[in-house]
Design a protein around this nucleic acid. Structure first.
Length: 486
RNA sequence: GGCGGCAUAGCCAAGUGGCUAAGGCAGCGGUCUGCAAAACCGUUAUUCACCGGUUCGAAUCCGGUUGCCGCCUCCA
């Protein structure tokens, strides 16, 4: 079986064949650190997190690079507003970004370069572009000449002629073509600046990704990712300058994730209709958010609504209830075999669940299909457990243990089902007012006595009282268990 | 204006040429239970926005219509 990825550059699903056998170079455009991230950023981070996890599970040796844009107008503006240095702003929001990523169980990339660390390289790249005739100096600034690059527009599927006419950009007279973009901006007072052959200034935005990707992955690498909105102009420009300066193909597969929308409108800083990861995590468990963000195919828009997220939560609760039931029936999983990711899906023969999961994920990361499969598996496990009852059929038990092991492997690729069920339930209800466990226990005991003498009225009264306290009772053959209402 | 995407049940969402259109949530009926809860079983789309066409056969391909959205300006 082979992995297929939709390549934006060709607008087709293509069989994924890395440049070097089992090695994969992946570069993803990260965030501009001037504010807290919203769940649109979370989606992008999670999508590529799952891509990396999946590739590793399939035995690929992935080098994952994700940058920080710590040099940008918005950072400078924010710094000026707050009377701080741009670097302070960037540092602060990088820290905040890490907090969000950690809570969402997003694996750290192998390399996380920052734009400001690569200004030297960018200056060199500009010099090369000038030397090769792809760039021109205009006063203090340097521009890239899109007409000099043959394949300009190829990636995003645009033609220069079309863009010239309908351009909404206020045309800068110093540009030779309206689509030319700035490689070097002459310094303005109060802005960060670096010395350069063209005078002090700072590099244009697109340059950083060109320089950092080739620094870590070379002039030709496997996958370049980012949000759909980066396709044009950012990725188009990155590609144009990289190929012009370094030769090679630049990225061979382009993977773009769709947006998170609210009321079907794109969530964005400029529209003000965004929900920060921070705020979302106040309301929802990280795994609920992960599952929600993976519940629709990564290329399609995903509409955020509280109803949709809580529906997903109900489903995840069901999965965890099954895992809890398994724990009591066959014991807890041995952590070792179930948490390692690398190669966990390299041999799926005779393992129907793993094989089906792999088939779905191979097809351009069909996470919604894969989630459906997980639910089918859960139903099947519950069925088996219902049938098993008190019997000690070892074959069924073994089957359950194996199936759970496989289920957790799949969960691991999606970055879910990593919690102890008890912990998960506790964390889910932690935001709600909690009743005192001792009080609950004593009420449960009191109710047990009432039930023993068949005093159903008292028993039900106690159960109702507990329910008002947010506690749900479950009577079983081995006594009554309780849980907080979710 | 240019380019592109989407439209599948009450809601969310897979499926992109061929067995009975996955799965989740919600609802209803049942099993279990003193009653519940949880779980399970059954049930909820003769039909995939609409109209034509291609085909033995289409939700899936082609053309058109309508509606929604995105990119073309910083943006995951």
């Amino acid at each position: 079986m082979t992995i297929k990825l939709y390549n934006t550059a060709t607008r087709r699903k293509e069989v994924f064949r890395p440049l070097n056998d089992k090695k994969v170079g992946l570069y993803v455009c990260g965030v501009t650190v001037y504010d807290l991230c919203h769940i649109g950023h979370a989606r992008s981070a999670i999508v590529f997190d799952v891509l990396v996890r999946y590739l590793r599970a399939r035995g690929f040796d992935v080098t994952y690079v994700r940058n920080f844009t710590d040099l940008d107008d918005k950072i400078i503006n924010r710094a000026n507003e707050l009377g701080k240095k741009p670097m302070e702003i960037a540092e602060h929001y990088i820290d905040e970004f890490y907090k969000d990523m950690e809570r969402l169980s997003i694996l750290k990339p192998d390399k996380e370069p920052r734009a400001t660390q690569y200004v030297e390289g960018m200056i060199q790249m500009i010099a090369t572009l000038i030397e090769k005739g792809f760039a021109y100096v205009e006063g203090q600034d340097v521009f890239y000449s899109v007409e000099k690059f043959n394949g300009y527009g190829q990636l995003s599927g645009r033609r220069l002629e079309d863009m010239k006419a309908g351009s909404r950009i206020a045309v800068n007279e110093r540009k030779r073509h309206p689509m030319d973009f700035v490689l070097w901006k002459g310094a303005k007072p109060g802005e960060p600046q670096w010395p350069s052959p063209w005078g002090p200034g700072r590099p244009g935005w697109h340059l950083e990704c060109s320089v950092m990707s080739s620094h870590f992955l070379g002039p030709t690498f496997d996958i370049h990712g980012g949000g759909k909105d980066l396709l044009f102009p950012h990725h188009e420009n990155e590609r144009a300058q990289s190929i012009a300066a370094n030769g090679g193909e630049f990225a061979r597969y382009w993977v773009h994730n769709g947006f998170v929308t609210i009321d079907s409108e794109k969530m964005s800083k400029s529209l003000g209709n965004f929900l920060t990861i921070r705020d979302a995590l106040k309301e929802y468990h990280p795994e609920v958010l992960r599952l929600f963000l993976l519940s629709k195919h990564y290329r399609h828009p995903l509409d955020f609504s509280r109803n949709a997220v809580s529906d997903v939560q109900s489903g995840l609760v069901r999965i965890y209830r099954t895992l809890q039931r398994l724990n009591t029936l066959v014991g807890k999983p041995t952590t070792q075999s179930e948490t390692s990711l690398y190669g966990s899906l390299s041999d799926t023969k005779d393992h129907p669940l793993l094989e089906q999961f792999t088939n779905l994920m191979d097809d351009d990361l069909n996470t919604p299909g894969a989630i459906g499969l997980i639910f089918e598996t859960v139903k099947d496990m519950n069925r088996t457990m219902d049938k098993l009852g008190d019997k000690t059929g070892t074959r069924d038990r073994e089957k359950l243990v194996t199936e759970r092991e496989h289920l957790l492997r799949c969960g691991n690729v999606l970055g879910i089902l990593a919690e102890e069920p008890e912990t998960f339930f506790q964390e889910l209800s932690s935001s709600k007012p909690e009743a005192d466990p001792e009080e609950i226990e004593s009420l449960v005991a009191e109710r047990a006595r009432a039930r023993a003498r068949k005093d159903w009225a008292t028993a039900d009264a106690i159960r109702n009282r507990l329910r008002e306290m947010g506690v749900i009772l479950e009577d079983g053959p081995k006594g009554t268990t309780w849980r907080y209402e979710i």
